[in-house]
Simulated assay, not measured.
Amino acid sequence: MGDIDDASPRPDRPADDSDHVTGTFHASLEGAPEPPAPADCPFCDLPQDRYATDRAGHWILLEPRILVPAHTVPPRRRWIITSTGTALNLWDAEPLPGALCRIPHRMACPRLDPEDHWPRVTALRRFNDRRSQRLFDLPEDGPPGTGWPRDDDAVKRRRGAPGHGRRWMKSTTWETVPDGGRRVCAACGTAVRSYRYRFHPPESPMFERCIGLAWCNGCGVYSGSMVYVPRDQVLVDALAQLPPDERERLGRSETRLIGYLDERAGDETWPSGP
């Protein structure tokens, strides 16, 4: 089904783009099928409005026939249609009073987990949560001289460890930085883990369009995007040993899938990547 490593998956960047934080680059993250394929969402199969962007070969699926006040839409998710019929991402530009915009279907797709549109506030909330948790964490070996053994399960639950109800938050602006031969989270320095898997069957012309997930175990944030993987490259299926109903359950939720993958990442049987 997929492949895991410690490199953050991301779409190919244009050769003349020195900063990946651009409207055209962001358009490639939307994962719209290219013509002549139907303009249907690859996750929920609902028909959408497909528009070309100002980057050749990249398309965007917008919610059909919906215009919303631009000031009610988070930055970087506001799209307008230009006089040439192409879609343009307004990025961080402040909308004019009364301005309207289109929104990407991914914001409203019923088969995708809601995205985090305020990652800086989320990061601060998680930081404060870790600070407050230290006030309640008992010493792992118990009070001296009591003979009270450490309760590993309780410690893990208090710390929000994977497998104990940890909450994962999706972020479209989560940043990573290179660290030798790997990437680490820019906020906490934890090594980034990632996983790629095939979404379309081998006979599909979109077989090479895969889903890439990357996450930080320290901050509990993750990102997802469509990534290109050559047809002849074999991806390791991390869910191969699971029964079909469990595979289906994990496949319906990105957060459940991330939680399972993060738990397995420390397992000696975990695949090491390509």
Rank of each mutant, 00 (worst) to 15 (best):
M1V: 08
D12L: 00
D19F: 12
H20F: 08
V21N: 13
S28D: 02
G31K: 00
P38F: 03
D40A: 06
C44I: 02
Q48R: 09
R50T: 15
A56L: 11
A56G: 12
L61M: 12
L62G: 11
L62A: 11
H71M: 08
V73G: 05
I80P: 01
I80H: 07
T84M: 04
P97E: 10
G98R: 04
P104T: 14
A108T: 14
P110C: 01
L112M: 01
D116H: 02
W118C: 06
R120K: 07
R120M: 04
D129A: 11
R130M: 07
S132P: 03
R150S: 13
V155Y: 15
K156L: 12
R157D: 03
H164W: 13
G165I: 04
M169H: 15
T172Q: 07
V177Y: 00
P178V: 11
C185F: 04
E203R: 08
R209K: 05
C216K: 06
G218C: 02
C219L: 10
G220D: 00
G220V: 00
G220F: 04
V229P: 10
R231P: 05
Q233W: 15
V234W: 02
P244S: 00
E248S: 12
G251H: 12
G251R: 14
L257D: 06
E263G: 15
W270M: 10
